[in-house]
Simulated scan of single mutants.
Amino acid sequence: MATRLFIDGAAGTTGLEIRERLQGRSEFDLIILDDAQRKDESARRDALHAADIAILCLPDDAAKEAVKLAEGSGTRIIDASSAHRVADGWTYGFPELIGHDAIANAQFVSNPGCYPTGFLALVAPLVRAGLLPADWPYTVNAVSGYSGGGNALIARFEADGAPAFRAYGYDMAHKHLPEMQLHAGLAHPVIFAPAVVPAYRGMVVEVPLHLGAMAGDPTADQLRAALSDFYAATPVVTVADGAAPGELLLDRKAPPWDSLTLHVIGNAGGWNVRLVAVLDNLGKGASGAAIQSLNIMCGLPETTGLRL
């Protein structure tokens, strides 16, 4: 029997990309609301209660409201907003870090943020292994395609006179900070420097480190080997070899992709390193991650429907 699936917020960017990844899949029976019903609380409640699994592609407050509407239903929920990423009772939907069994058995799964996906993929395994200190003052520099900023930012970057570069987050209170700190097991919040560039999709997340100033004197080769071992069994995350790339590019018209590539780029002595993650902010950073968790929750191969 097909799993009854409701996407609340299916008309948004993340919802549309999830729908695209589900095309032609007989494992799911989609519950679809028309334009009028999408904003009708009663219709949404009925859909949430009728579904086996619901994926919330909504702003934070609306996602919290949807969870309340679903109360008493037993419906399993994947929340693509940032509303529940550090909330009690929610499983963090990053199977490579959290474990597949935790997601397979969860009722409530919070989809990781796009920037935190890159940061956590790089840092969390190395902190767990004791190669990087949990009390280090980490800095994250990142650029993203504009699609992750919602309809207003998409319109701004696609209009005449669009900006070539948009840096933001100068209040030092970005909503991703608690997520990065908690799931990496850090003693301090990171300093996060995000920016947007005129590419529709794609993301580069970088963590520069002065390894020579750390206790234990870790080297770039040790970090790369540890990440390679950690992700050896996953088909989604790839760790590049030690050759330093001449450049890393984001294509303005890149097609969707759901994989994640990690780079550990050290200097000649190995004492300075740039940890770099390259991903699609709408793929492993949003819709692709939701599909991966959905597959795991339904007992299906985790890469089904993904674009790797």
Rank of each mutant, 00 (worst) to 15 (best):
A199R: 08
E302L: 04
L262G: 09
H210D: 15
A129N: 12
E206N: 06
G246D: 14
M297A: 01
A244I: 02
A213M: 13
G202I: 06
R38L: 02
H188M: 14
E158Y: 03
P137F: 01
V264N: 09
E41W: 00
A195L: 09
H49S: 14
P235K: 03
A142Y: 01
L300P: 00
A106F: 00
A36C: 00
L5R: 10
G212W: 13
P178K: 05
L182S: 11
R128Q: 15
D79W: 02
L120A: 00
Q23R: 15
G72F: 00
A134W: 04
F6K: 08
D135H: 02
Y92R: 05
H174K: 13
H210R: 13
H100A: 10
P255F: 04
P235Y: 04
P95K: 01
D88A: 14
A290G: 13
D217Y: 06
N295G: 10
R21Q: 10
S73T: 08
R128A: 15
I98Y: 00
P198Q: 11
F230K: 01
G169W: 07
L227A: 04
A225N: 10
D79V: 00
D241Q: 11
V190D: 11
G270M: 03
F230A: 02
N267T: 06
P245F: 00
F28I: 05
L182Q: 15
S287P: 11
D61K: 07
V239L: 08
V236N: 08
R307F: 03
A10F: 03
L211N: 13
S73D: 10
E96V: 01
D35S: 11
